[in-house]
């Protein structure tokens, strides 16, 4: 799941965006694209152009979906696998935010803390989280603890660095103004610093969710008994292309839902973002 900070073309250039169709026309074109893709898929497979082992027809994928949903596959129903994956993601997300945001706030407000932690962060950050998998297995064994830790490692740098930088960007006059009005200590932190940083923090949380989500399949490939990644590796080993497509499509849909949900809650939680 790739996150790029999206800018509204109109907000940047001050001109209505003539390079994009209005939504009323984009939606039918999107439908055309979806229907066209499905038709191409169906005709290619029904016409026997590609082997079913490479690309099974839509009806085969749907049957696999049905079979996995009702009878289950690789030891659990589809919903069971989905639930296990969602639970791991949720736990990792809560832990990442719970560690990352406070740490980032402290690092952003205290130069001493930042200078102590920064070198370690700089050592840990450029390494893709999968490279830590070996260490985690040695230290924590093969279990959900090391799986969730791997997910957390995939999301943590974005939150810590994003929050630290967000605190650094708080305008000095805003802090001085609040001080002049007699706000100090924790109240200053809560009302001014936290309030000013929240939009940027939520953006970094969204990027972290991306990092966590992309690590999911990898984390579940190692010795997990349940989860979408487990399903994927079982289907790869048993050469069941239908199931592979079901899982890939489901993961894409799941990522899309998570991404949209976070964007929506960002708009709801910080409606003032970018306004002043």
């Amino acid at each position: 799941m790739t996150s790029i900070p999206v800018r509204d073309a109109q907000a940047v250039t001050g001109q209505p965006d003539v390079r994009q169709l209005p939504w009323s026309e984009r939606i039918p074109w999107g439908l055309v694209s979806a229907v066209g893709l499905m038709t191409a898929w169906w005709s290619v497979t029904a016409g026997g152009v590609v082997a079913p082992i490479v690309l099974p027809g839509p009806e085969v994928v749907f049957q696999s979906f049905w079979k996995a949903a009702i009878d289950g596959y690789a030891g659990a129903t589809l919903l069971g696998h989905l639930g296990a994956s969602a639970l791991r993601l949720a736990v990792a997300f809560v832990v990442t935010v719970g560690i990352g945001v406070p740490l980032g706030l402290v690092m952003g407000s205290s130069r001493a803390v930042r200078e102590v932690i920064d070198p370690w962060l700089e050592l840990y950050r450029p390494v893709p989280s999968l490279a830590y998998l070996g260490l985690l297995v040695i230290w924590l064994g093969v279990g959900d603890l090391s799986r969730v830790t791997l997910l957390v490692l995939g999301g943590l740098p974005a939150v810590v660095i994003g929050t630290t930088e967000a605190v650094g960007r708080v305008r000095a006059d805003r802090i001085q103004g609040a001080r002049a009005l007699g706000i100090s200590g924790f109240a200053l932190f809560r009302i001014v610093i936290y309030g000013s940083c929240l939009p940027d923090i939520l953006t970094s949380v969204r990027i972290a969710a991306t990092g966590i989500f992309t690590t999911l399949v990898a984390a579940e490939l190692m010795g997990s008994r349940i989860g979408l990644g487990t399903m994927l590796s079982a289907a790869s080993n048993q050469m069941e292309p239908g199931i592979i497509y079901v899982v890939v499509l489901l993961l894409g849909a799941m990522g899309l839902v998570v991404d949209q949900a976070l964007r929506w809650s960002q708009r709801r939680l910080v409606p003032w973002a970018g306004k002043f």
Binding site: Q20, L21, S33, A218, G252, A253
Partner: peptide, 22 residues
Amino acid sequence: SALLDPIIDFVRCIPPLAILSL
């Protein structure tokens, strides 16, 4: 843009290892 945006939006949400299995 209108044709491809939904497809790109979907593909970007699939974890790379899931793409690898395809």
